[in-house]
């Protein structure tokens, strides 16, 4: 499965009936936006609302022809929308908090930092998507993926994994690097979709 470039996706988005592209876009950017706004200090529930808001606003604005590629990257545009949505919510809750006597300041990182956070979140979303695809692809090699997840997700040491699975340490390293090699390929294949190239 080849990732559609963002440009190709954007073309599809102009068609109001093309649900498939929109779902694809949503799947790609929803997790990024969600984490991004969480980094701005939103709770899980708020982040979910703000993300929904951001995506809808983006789609409407995009279909209304308000995205001009000459004026900046797509990510910068999404960052702005997400930032505004998050700020609205933060302000509202800060005002509420102020009425209860809490601090009323709204803490939002600067533009450069937001870009940096966005890139980090894109990278993480990409990595997560890549991990998911790795799992799907390597299902046939149950033991290999299991060893890898014990090391990567559970954070166990090689010794521990070796004891638990009965594989030799060298086999554990083999499984780890086989997965990582594949993961690298997947990541490089997918990066273009997140404008990370």
């Amino acid at each position: 499965m080849l990732e559609k470039t963002t440009t190709a996706m954007l073309q599809g988005l102009t068609d109001p009936d093309n649900d498939v592209v929109w779902r694809e876009f949503d799947a790609r950017f929803r997790p990024v936006i969600e984490r991004f706004v969480r980094r701005m200090g939103l709770s899980e529930a708020d982040a979910s609302d703000v993300t929904q808001d951001t995506l809808i606003k983006f789609l409407h604005a995009y279909r209304a022809g308000r995205y001009d590629k000459q004026r900046g990257r797509l990510s910068s545009w999404i960052i702005k929308i997400a930032r505004n949505c998050a700020c609205d919510l933060l302000r509202a809750s800060a005002a509420q908090g102020a009425r209860r006597g809490a601090s009323a300041f709204v803490e939002v990182p600067g533009e450069n930092q937001l870009e940096l956070i966005w890139r980090e979140e894109c990278r993480d979303a990409l990595l997560e998507a890549a991990l998911a695809r790795l799992r799907a692809e390597t299902r046939t090699e149950e033991q290999t993926i299991r060893i890898f997840e014990m090391l990567a997700v559970d954070g166990l040491s090689v010794q521990r994994v070796s004891q638990e699975t009965g594989a030799t340490p060298n086999d554990v390293y083999l499984a780890k690097h086989r997965c990582l090699k594949r993961l690298r390929a997947i990541v490089s294949d997918m990066s273009i979709a997140y404008e990370l190239e």
């Binding site: 990595l127 997560e128 991990l131 990567a152 997700v153 954070g155 780890k176 993961l183 990541v187």
Partner: peptide, 17 residues
């Protein structure tokens, strides 16, 4: 890449420890 994966799991986003 593995350090990135570890960082990701440490942040709890994939349910890791």
């Amino acid at each position: 890449l593995f350090t990135d994966v570890l960082r990701l799991t440490e942040r709890g986003l994939t349910g890791g420890v």
